[in-house]
Amino acid sequence: MELDRLDRDIIAALVEDARQTYAEIGQEVGLSASAVKRRVDRLRESGAITGFSAMVAPAALGWTTEAYVELFCQGKTKPSDIALAVARYPEVVGAATITGEADALLHIRATDVRHVERVIERIAAEPFVVRTKSAIVLSRLVDSPPGTTLPDARNGSHVPG
């Protein structure tokens, strides 16, 4: 779906505060509340907006430690096999296939370093995993929620939301 500037502004407003009213968003972007609602409905129907949720600080839930783990897999392990295996671990909050030597990169959240270690040990025991390489996050330098920076369709650069 092609997003125009108003769509981008509406999405940015929703990312900033999804609980604000259509009238409040309309004031911000220069549309009536009903026009904002029609656009939000269209954005939802098209799949551009996939839902609304509360953002909770992981530390509030006891997840105070995070790590990134590279997976090196044997042979031609399919991404779907990796996805099925790592989805069983609630500590894995993100996973992606990547370029470079590793086959996949996992984002892990845990209660402490020992917990991270146990999760990595369990993942390393998966039959397709040859080895892992991990990095513990010391501090986050940039932590923007998805959608706060939207690509500018004209030149591919990012436009703050």
Score class of each variant (00 low, 15 high):
S53L: 10
P127Y: 05
T64W: 06
R140C: 06
L84Y: 09
G51P: 03
G62S: 05
R39P: 07
R19S: 14
V36M: 12
S134C: 04
F72K: 01
I120Y: 05
A12M: 11
L138F: 07
H158L: 10
C73S: 05
S134R: 07
R140Y: 12
P151K: 10
K37Y: 14
R122D: 15
D81V: 03
V142N: 13
A13N: 09
L31C: 09
G62H: 09
W63T: 07
A125M: 03
E66H: 09
R140H: 15
L106D: 00
V93C: 08
V113T: 13
A33Y: 04
Y22A: 14
V69C: 11
P58W: 12
E70R: 02
G47R: 10
A95C: 04
A60D: 15
G161M: 11
I11D: 07
S53E: 15
T149N: 10
A59W: 11
G30F: 13
H115C: 05
L31R: 15
M1R: 03
T77G: 01
A153E: 13
G51W: 08
G47D: 08
V86M: 10
G26Y: 12
G147I: 06
A135C: 05
E66T: 12
G94M: 04
A48G: 01
E101C: 02
V119F: 03
T99M: 00
L14A: 14
V142R: 14
V93W: 02
D152G: 03
I10N: 08
P58D: 07
S134I: 02
S34M: 07
A104F: 00
E126P: 00
Y22F: 15
G47K: 08
L141P: 00
P58L: 14
A60S: 14
R109I: 08
Y89E: 14
P146E: 15
I10W: 05
R8Q: 09
V36A: 13
E91R: 07
E117H: 12
R88E: 15
A13R: 11
E121F: 09
N155R: 05
R118K: 15
Q74R: 11
S32L: 08
H107I: 01
E91S: 13
E16T: 14
R5Y: 07
A104K: 01
A153Y: 01
V113R: 10
A95P: 01
G75E: 06
V119Q: 03
G156L: 02
P58R: 10
V36P: 11
G30N: 12
A124F: 02
E126M: 05
G26T: 13
S34H: 05
G47H: 09
A102L: 02
G156F: 01
E45K: 08
